[in-house]
Design a protein around this nucleic acid. Structure first.
Lengths: 218, 218
DNA sequence: AATATTTTGGACACAATTGTCCAATCCGTC
DNA sequence: GACGGATTGGACAATTGTGTCCAAAATATT
């Protein structure tokens, strides 16, 4: 762990050849870290998968710890961006709440929950969270720490507009997310790769139950 | 990987000295595997934690692969046994469905979901499932493959008795489990150790929402 | 107390990995 | 085409881990 600086020797965002290699390295590293864990992932394996020499990795990203940190930061950004892009389409004043919330849920599932970035992060956080505490505190802050309150705020808005009946919006947010992930988690536990075509059905299931629980009693 | 037999040189269930050491090894191995993953866990670390010499591990359990398999089998048995012991208390013909189902949910949370065995398994399955496919196929079979149908059957029974209104019992089972784990998962993602004292509240939250969604419309 | 078995700890060969160094080479830029 | 930084691949020391062997010590059985 001799080389541990996070700085780059040059501006790799505007220097074509390096940027591509760098991206290839980060993608390969993400794959191998996810497959093998931090301890099991070897720099050689990453280099081979990236189609790059081992030395290039050390040149551009320093030692293994730093490489890992950069990968986590990268994936965190991507995943967070995807989530909030979808969140902007939340139906705050819906005409038909069931169909609109179902559509939103499907988008959220597709773009933010079972997308590769989110899956990677959840897996790596669970596996290596203890090894890099400071890294995952910032992840928590920007990940669940922002997502759940954001969902809670939208739900509260719906409740305020009379579309829902919610006592505790943050609890409702946790339950909404849990229902969304219910079928997904089951598939995942059973080792099944959820096919794209079933995501709409999953969103419909979750939304229907959620609305049954939180729709205003007439 | 020279030594890979799963047989034991003697009956260790009735051979006192070995049984204790063996158990100490399995417990230590479970800890280290969970912390470090399969690749990162070293036999030396396991031996040190078990208070046992490295050679004893090889004598009793063979190589690392076999040690891992035995640990997984052991924890799987424990976890499964705990689950079905709680399942026997499911309120099939409740007088007050909300309080009885809440109580059952709390028991399930305590004894089968956030107990150390279950947590260990879920983590290890996610991390090393790809490395030992045959091992985790049998886990799937005896774990989620039996638990979800078992829950679904009880829910169907409640529906048949007029206590609930359920179209698809297996879907309801997935959603019930998801709601149960909602708060737990949030805490876990936020790196928070859920205190024992909040489990009752979590069970109440889940049960209340579940019943709101599936109680008969009067 | 004598015997059988297990446990121990140290030594060993072997393989894999990390991180560094360096000369040869590649490849955009000028 | 010449320049300069980036890339490559091979070699290297140091470390770590696996799995084995073995004689001495501890422990259970009889």
């Amino acid at each position: 762990m001799k080389n541990s600086s996070a700085e780059l020797p040059r501006d790799y965002d505007t220097w074509p050849p390096a940027r591509n290699k760098r991206q290839a390295i980060l993608n390969a590293a993400a794959d191998v870290f996810a497959q093998e864990g931090f301890g099991g992932a070897s720099i050689d394996a990453i280099a081979a998968r990236a189609g790059v020499s081992r030395q290039t990795i050390y040149n551009q990203l320093g030692d293994k710890d730093n490489l890992f940190k950069v990968v986590v930061a990268e994936i965190t950004d991507r995943s967070s961006a995807g989530f909030f892009r979808v969140l902007d389409t939340f139906p705050v004043a819906p005409q038909d709440i069931e169909t609109e919330l179902t559509h939103f849920s499907a988008q959220l599932l597709r773009k933010a929950i079972c997308d590769p970035n989110g899956r990677w992060l959840r897996k790596v956080v669970e596996t290596e969270g203890a090894r890099f505490p400071e890294l995952f505190e910032t992840w928590k802050e920007y990940g669940p720490g922002k997502k759940y309150p954001a969902i809670a705020a939208r739900l509260a808005q719906l409740a305020h507009g009379g579309y829902l009946e919610i006592d505790d919006p943050t609890l409702a947010a946790r339950q909404y997310m849990a229902l969304l992930a219910a079928d997904l988690r089951y598939d995942q536990q059973m080792g099944r790769q959820t096919p794209e075509s079933e995501i709409d059905q999953m969103a419909a299931n979750a939304t229907r139950t959620f609305l049954r629980a939180f729709a205003p009693r007439r």
